[in-house]
Design a protein around this nucleic acid. Structure first.
Lengths: 227, 227
DNA sequence: ATTCGCGTTTAAAACTTTTAACATCCCTAG
DNA sequence: CTAGGGATGTTAAAAGTTTTAAACGCGAAT
């Protein structure tokens, strides 16, 4: 998993240093800005995953920065501000910020809230990351996969069958189950058809197709995928 | 878009009523629970999109409820509590809550924070919801679409081309652009090939294929998709 | 030993994609 | 206003892929 990038926008030197120190310790990649204009330019070049944003800043207020970022990005924004009244918070949240922490803030709480804001991103990364069989990366969306003989294209049925099989790892799946799920209830090819596809998968992925590790056959029942 | 479901867990009657009234006004679907055990059973039956959770509850504390929910769900949880110290907040957030608002809370701020927590969900729904052309729903993932003659299967290329074209609505796209994007730089069929696919799309989707509304051809240039 | 099920190869069947050919429409030049 | 050329619509068939079936051999189970 990549380091998550945080842009810290804060003009008070002490606070900035504390934040830098602690967020670095947490393993985030950091960039800093000390005024509103720098914040926007750093935002564009750094493309952070989260912005910690002070409200009172030289040149351009945090509110303005937030408004502008929101015109082109949904990146999580967390306001840090000495202006801590309910009205201030509401104002900030209405601008599209995701959270608003009054100063002085508790460092532990800040770290937690940062984690919370970054969590959906991490999940997403997990979901969109491609599936791996051994060392081979399968790209279902684009119908291709790495294989022992380099990148090969996958056909529609190959994709569908492979998706179904790997969705049930370590489970023995009967041929009929496969036919039902991948081919649908109407169409019913010979169940031997499945064997042909398995044969292909073994050619793509198995070191030794004669002794399959990933695509094992269970005599009399069906197949089992072992990651 | 469906109504979003919120489970309110709160034993103080006044607060519960205020919340109910206002969240109803905002258009959320609501369920309520007045103690920890009811909260868990309602959670399972109601399957809410967000939980508003009081900390001090009869039978089972909000903390316990949160802990248990987190063992099987990532639903956003927002604590509401009279226990408002930093340590309380940190404790709640560490349990996996997404936000923590001390009582007395400002209603407007609560509504905003609820919106923020529900936002990712809404986005997701938008993404996974299928594309529509007229009244016909296109299911790119499963290679099929409704059409004037019922459900039809889409081929790989049909999907790719259709995806590309609808990704640029109201824009005139030249044949060469289409070839570059859908076929890739290497392979180059006659540009007339595209016409054949367009012909199919019109058969699928146009009321009157002779006078296309959705897939218009722009003489000398290419095609334009108008939703 | 015989039967049954799977692995494997090969080829036929089905389907998709591309090309070719002709029809039709639209613009423009005469 | 009309003829001709160029572009798109339409159909059908060719070429290319994918999917399915058939056939045979091998090894395990009964």
């Amino acid at each position: 998993m990549k380091k998550q990038k945080i842009l810290i926008v804060e003009d008070e030197e002490n606070i900035l240093e504390t934040l830098q120190l602690n967020l670095d310790l947490e393993g985030y990649a950091l960039e800093t800005a000390v005024d509103g204009e720098e914040a926007l330019s750093k935002f564009k070049s750094f493309q952070p995953d989260l912005v910690l944003l002070d409200v009172m800043l030289p040149k351009k207020s945090g509110y303005d920065v937030c408004r502008e970022i929101r015109t082109y990005s949904n990146v999580p924004i967390l306001f840090l501000s000495a202006k801590g009244t309910t009205q201030d918070r509401i104002f900030g949240l209405k601008l599209g910020a995701n959270d608003y922490l009054p100063k002085p803030f508790d460092l532990e709480e800040l770290l937690l809230r940062i984690q919370i804001l970054l969590a959906p991103l991490q999940e997403q990364e997990k979901e969109t990351s491609n599936f791996k069989i051994g060392d081979f990366e399968v790209d279902f969306k684009n119908f291709k996969t790495d294989s022992r003989s380099g990148e090969v294209g996958l056909t529609k049925k190959e994709c569908e069958l492979l998706k179904y099989i790997v969705s049930r790892p370590n489970e023995v799946i009967s041929r009929n189950e496969i036919l039902d799920h991948v081919w649908g209830e109407e169409k019913y090819p010979t169940s031997r058809t499945i064997d042909n596809f398995i044969l292909n998968f073994r050619k793509y992925f198995e070191d030794n197709p004669k002794q399959p590790k990933y695509f094992q056959s269970i005599r009399g029942v069906g197949y089992k995928f072992t990651p």
